[in-house]
Design a protein around this nucleic acid. Sequence first.
DNA 1: TACCAGACTTGATTCAGGTCAATGTGATGG
DNA 2: CCATCACATTGACCTGAATCAAGTCTGGTA
Lengths: 240, 240
Amino acid sequence: MSASHTPEDVHDRCAHCVGRRLSVCSSIDDCDLAILANESSRMTVSDGRSFIEEGAPANDFFVVTGGRVKLFTLLPDGRRQITGFAKGGDFLGLAASTSYAFGAEALGGATLCRFPHAGMQRLTERFPSLEHRLREEASRELALMQARMTLLGRKTARERVATFLIERCQNLEKPDLSHPVELDLPMPRTDIADYLGLTIETVSRILSAFKKEKLISIRSITHITLLMPERISTIAEGME
Amino acid sequence: MSASHTPEDVHDRCAHCVGRRLSVCSSIDDCDLAILANESSRMTVSDGRSFIEEGAPANDFFVVTGGRVKLFTLLPDGRRQITGFAKGGDFLGLAASTSYAFGAEALGGATLCRFPHAGMQRLTERFPSLEHRLREEASRELALMQARMTLLGRKTARERVATFLIERCQNLEKPDLSHPVELDLPMPRTDIADYLGLTIETVSRILSAFKKEKLISIRSITHITLLMPERISTIAEGME
DNA sequence: TACCAGACTTGATTCAGGTCAATGTGATGG
DNA sequence: CCATCACATTGACCTGAATCAAGTCTGGTA
């Protein structure tokens, strides 16, 4: 019998998880971690594999514990809107009643912690603060989506790309725009385009234009440095 | 001293409210209505008046008890994205952490019930099911927003207007698309345009086109009949 | 070291929807 | 009953981003 089933290890699984620090799990006391661990299970998803099917019955919540994930909705003819990128600590599955309102797939490999709805309900009954934490998470997400709707409905292509770059900065631990910022863009251009409601050609052209204007430097496809973050931020708000 | 301050009347105020049937208040038992009433206050907002300022400190939740309300975000230069229309029973204020992520104003006069955050917290502590209900509300809203992002990011003008018409149908009590449907559009074209990420001219042109194609008939500016709701629905999904 | 496949960039052209400019309409009030 | 005003519609034209079509770069592999 493997050691991985002892209570201590189950406890540790949660104790050392990013979700413990960042996600809804932070609303649970250390001494109760075993209960949390018992209601959840780990899973690994390899690059490009889908683990939430849009429209499928919504049976689970997920916490991203490692890697990255993209969320999207599709139109019948294949047009795709990426509604968000998730990273370690992010909570997935709130935008669902009986069926998921979005699909999800791994972006370069991801690890997840899965909470079946039934287990989550047992947890929220036992730890009422968890329910509050879930609502906070939903509120935060709602506020982000308001901004994204403004982006998609009212911003120009240039403003969208600038907004995207600034958003990536704000995902960093030190969101300081007063100095150059090095960014890692783990997603392909196609995903950026589908996130911004543009085509890949337009995204590419605008990044090239920013480079020509010395606003950014492109060290490699995935590695971009914002040379003038504050100017980019100004562009993002439509005030250039 | 007016009778309006007796406990019975306070109770009645909630008992006869649309929110009682439709909104988060439905998670409270009849016998506790006085407690609910005590944490809330009624207010009236006249046409076009704003009652939530985007970016202002978020101190209250609101339930729409009558009339209609529009929610929006603004860019510094005045471009506006309407993020939703709310009607009787709808809950407002979840998309806010410390400050509101959106502005709100009445569309032709509205009545609201205001819940200060502090009072709402007392209520959720006393009635844990209310917290759950708030989360459900947030989830419902999140699912709607996913669809709206797809609309704004990936649909054509024609598909957007068709989607808007179908959404209006689904707000009705009998969402039956197999027969002609009479719709009331209480909002001006400007608002429809800002909701769909289009200009008012484009909205107007597409409605005229739908009329020419015998998909709708326009009885007056605010009164439209969908003659072939299912065909409009097909257009809305991009499958025409 | 050269080849290949997939992802990205760049250029030329097109077109959906925006902008600008009349014109129409219907509610209100003198 | 007409003038006014705000809103909506329609038309002519323009433009930002999409589409179509070559290139180019990169990393893997033989």
